[in-house]
């Protein structure tokens, strides 16, 4: 049955709560992009649920005028899994940070991706612990000086996308925190994707890790240092649109179109829908250029689809309709 979806503007999704992130934080960009994206998604407001863990990012649900739960540290994917299994008709969003998802919640993060339940996860990655005021996180760089690593961090970082694809993520996108337009489009694509979608936002923390992505995200350099991939299009970047990626043996290589006989036809064409994640993983791992956009979007059966099919099959083969049918079945006896 086709149900009518109401028309909304971004204001319909803003709650009456004062937003309390630090001035200049990229979190505001994400919030506004979300509020702009929701009216475009074709879902009713009452069917939208935001579930978060703990951290700066996880205050997000309070600012959305939808259903929401501010959960406990690291557990949002598990809470959201319960919400979605209980009511598969809901549009369920998980809001998490790099510490929340990859340190304390690492176990839930990998398993939610493995199961491929139809959730959307926005990972606010700022390579630092913000709410606890400045300790290194699982994505902090080696050598990074923080409150808990005054002489430099000695723990090698996770790459969120590498961990995610290693955990069988079917949808992975990486977006710079200062690009609201791309972010809105990506959020809409994530909602449309049937399965777990993970969007990593490279989010600047103005207080504890200011400039952590500037070398790739600053307006003056981003065209030259970011490759924004689009499914079906060649992997070309640069202010002059003359740089591109080719495969050289088992490595990606940056080439210049017009030099050494390279033409646009030689440049790799992005296939986000490919089942084999090898090339997606190489794109995620590339240190230059930084690859953004929807890197992987492979359609696969979801957990709830498997569960539904199994339930239908069991129901069809069962004589039990009411619990009494079970209670009085099999070996019973009567005392007069």
């Amino acid at each position: 049955m086709e149900t009518t979806v109401k028309k909304y503007t971004f204001r319909d999704f803003a709650s009456d709560q004062e937003v309390r992130w630090c001035p200049g934080c990229d979190d505001y960009v994400i919030l506004r992009s979300m509020q702009k994206a929701l009216p475009e998604m074709g879902v009713n407001k009452e069917d939208v649920v935001f579930i978060s863990g703990i951290g700066c990012s996880s205050r997000f649900p309070y600012y959305m005028d939808t259903y929401g739960m501010h959960g406990i540290h690291g557990r949002a994917p598990a809470i959201a899994t319960g919400v979605k299994l209980a009511n598969p008709g809901l549009s369920v969003w998980v809001i998490t940070g790099d510490g929340d998802s990859m340190a304390i919640g690492g176990n839930h993060f990998i398993h939610v991706l493995r199961r491929n339940i139809d959730l959307n996860i926005i990972l606010f990655n700022n390579k630092i612990y913000g709410l606890t005021k400045g300790q290194f996180s699982p994505t902090s760089s080696v050598g990074q000086k923080t409150k808990s690593s005054p002489y430099g961090n000695t723990q090698p970082p996770f790459l969120a996308g590498e961990l995610a694809i290693g955990s069988q993520a079917r949808f992975f996108a990486r977006i710079a925190g200062n690009m609201p337009g791309e972010m809105t489009d990506t959020l809409i694509a994530a909602e449309k994707f049937n399965g777990t979608s993970l969007i990593e936002v490279l989010q600047n923390c103005v207080i504890f890790n200011d400039g952590c992505f500037t070398e790739f995200t600053d307006k003056t350099v981003r065209e030259d240092r970011q490759l924004h991939v689009v499914h079906g299009e060649p992997m070309i970047f640069g202010k002059n649109r003359d740089k591109g990626l080719v495969l050289n043996g088992l490595k990606l290589e940056v080439v210049t179109i017009g030099e050494q006989g390279i033409t646009e036809a030689d440049i790799l064409v992005h296939d986000a829908c490919e089942q084999d994640p090898t090339l997606h993983q190489m794109l995620v791992r590339l240190s230059f250029p930084l690859v953004t956009g929807i890197i992987r979007s492979y359609a696969d059966i979801t957990l709830e689809e498997r569960e539904d099919a199994l339930t239908a099959k069991v129901k069809a083969n069962s004589d039990f309709v009411k619990t009494d049918d079970l209670f009085f079945s099999g070996e019973t006896y009567t005392v007069e």
Partner: peptide, 24 residues
């Protein structure tokens, strides 16, 4: 009977998924 079960990844996901299902 429409019973939904999730064998979770750990004890914490066992209870938190139940909290999510209760919320819903």
């Amino acid at each position: 009977f429409g019973v939904k079960t999730l064998q979770a990844e750990d004890e914490i996901a066992g209870i938190t998924s139940a909290i999510g299902a209760s919320f819903a």
